[in-house]
Amino acid sequence: MKYTKLITRCAGIWLMRDFAYKYDFFIKTLAVAVYDVLGPLIALFIYSATPGLPGWNFYQFLLFQGTLIIVFGLGRTFSASLAWWTLSAIYLGEFDQYLLKPYPTLLYLMALTVDHYGLVEVAVGTTVVTYSATQLGIPLLTISTLIYIFLIITAFFVHLGSNIIISSMGFLAVKSEALLQLYMNLMDFARYPLNVYGPGLRFFLTFLFPIAVTSFFPAQVLLKGAGIKMLAIAIIPVAIYFTISLLLWNTAMKKYRSAGG
């Protein structure tokens, strides 16, 4: 309850700040949308020049891309600036102020770093998914859709977890901007379906850095339905990944509060 209040307060504050420069606000909103449309546009060009990706026709791939955009959008709204914000607070020696507030530090930081532009992405992604699902004749009001939404929320925790890991590493090691850069590059592996990659990478993207759940598994659920085994493969690694991130955060906080940064 308090968290909802906080996060809306923050979003409101950022929105008002950005809105003070109206042109910039509208162009930025537009730019975010344009950036998202590039993926589907590239897909269209690839599919009109080639037979496309094995196992995926154009609309299926479009649905895949749309899913990716939704997840990126959620990640951006609620977690994408978390690591960056924390790292710069550590760098500037200004982290103490977050510990002085009577609220769980991680939740407070998440509220502070809310980014409303991510909602534009969620909207664009939803439109792309709805459009391609209609073209494919997939009914949208089924259990599969519920599972799809559930998997998308699961996928959000990969982004959140990654941000928490990078933030924690900022306390445990110096210069973890490197990890942030690495994470952003690794995220790009989610842009194409799992079956494109070799077996080693597939394993890595499913179990170790479970980014496959941010696009591949949810799209599969809508296209081919959900199986228990597939859901387990999609969800369990994320649960482990996220738990590890929280453990790491607690270690980091312990270290910070005993060593003073």
Binding site: K5, R9, G93, D96, Q97, P102
Partner: peptide, 26 residues
């Protein structure tokens, strides 16, 4: 608490926004 050199308000925002945040937090 006030720690001299380090601000606890958000740098890019007017103070009143930070105060409203605290209203929620506390």
């Amino acid at each position: 608490a006030v720690f001299g050199q380090k601000t606890q308000m958000m740098w890019d925002l007017p103070p009143i926004d930070s105060f409203y945040m605290d209203k929620d937090l506390y």
